[in-house]
Design a protein around this nucleic acid. Structure first.
Lengths: 192, 192
DNA sequence: AGTATTTCTTGCCATATGGAAAGAGTATCC
DNA sequence: GGATACTCTTTCCATATGGCAAGAAATACT
């Protein structure tokens, strides 16, 4: 059921049943084809997405114009560039579908209206923001303190399905190395 | 004037004069000696700080037990481990004074009360959270896309006073390299 | 099926960074 | 003023990672 899906996503003890119905109504379903972009660098995000089905990634361009994958996203995760969305400023990141999929989209204005009406949703937002901050901090610390092999093993452990479904070059740039190096690391691991 | 200070910190068009008086009253001044810790890993943050004077850093320990500096903080910046504070969970980070200084401290409970009373403060909080998220994302992208020399030059450009005042080993661990490497990089830059 | 495209691996060599240890320089303390 | 503890640089060598290019393997297209 549609309502249950949003209850899982916007999970908070202070959001009531009728609130979830209103939240559900504010989202619209959207099919996405593999490779398509849901947000492009430089544009202002006017909506965000909740993934129902499929695999996605966010990426930026480095100084040499190479794509650098910053995160992978799967079902029940949010595809949101919060700074661009809430500050109405150009996005730094790109969102791309890595497979065909289905997402639930919600417009900025509509979400702001819900935030104004539902205190529990504001609370959910604070929790999301602090948790997300925490996750990004942890990732950035890992980038600093672990070597490439350990980062790969860590990803393999935490998100095995990513490794299986995603082309090596995206995984490599996510780990901060070249696809050549990742290929060598894989070989090393297999033979160990 | 004390109130002006907090007006600069919690800057928001929707916070009134009397609100700022109440906010100012909720903070207490505290002198800090160089080297002392304001928060330790594993403890639950029960307060946060606004820096009036002095230089601070946050750091974590890597798998080998080495300290890794995650950020530097100067006057008018917040020393806050938001996840620990708002989720009442053990802190991942440590806060340390790198010089003698003065901070304004506010207790969790007191801040929660202010948040409950002042809508403008909640709005300020949302802005702070999204901006902070953005800053950390940018930093983590820099770690991925720039080499050590460029990261050093970038820091030198953005926060020259850090380079002048902070021991090289802290800067090195912030950049994700050893002090030996940073020393070599410095030499290379001077002769170029 | 057959061709084109993408993905992955491998080899060779260059460069960046690390680890350990020694020594020089600087600040601190009594 | 001298002892002590930091701080920073330097050297030697080891290891990790990158760049390029070729080829193999897998996948997509018609």
């Amino acid at each position: 059921m549609k309502k249950d899906f949003f209850q899982t996503i916007y999970n908070s003890p202070h959001i009531g049943k009728t609130d979830y119905e209103e939240i559900a109504k504010a989202h619209s379903q959207m099919d996405v084809r593999s490779g398509s972009l849901l947000l492009e660098e430089g544009k202002i995000a006017s909506e965000f997405y909740i993934i129902e089905k499929g695999l996605f990634r966010s990426f930026v361009y480095d100084y040499d114009g190479n794509e650098v994958t910053t995160e992978f996203y799967g079902p029940k995760e949010l595809l949101i560039e919060s700074f661009s969305l809430f500050h109405r400023s150009p996005s730094m990141e790109n969102f791309q579908a890595l497979s065909n999929g289905t997402v639930w989209k919600i417009e900025y204005q509509l979400f702001q209206q819900l935030l104004g009406k539902i205190e529990g949703l504001r609370e959910w937002g604070r929790t999301w923001a602090t948790s997300h901050l925490f996750i990004i901090k942890k990732r950035s610390i890992k980038m600093l303190t672990m070597n490439a092999t350990d980062r790969y093993l860590n990803l393999l452990n935490e998100r095995p399905q990513i490794i299986r479904q995603v082309p090596l070059k995206f995984i490599a740039s996510y780990l901060g190395i070249t696809d050549t190096s990742l290929s060598r690391i894989r070989k090393e691991i297999v033979t160990t």
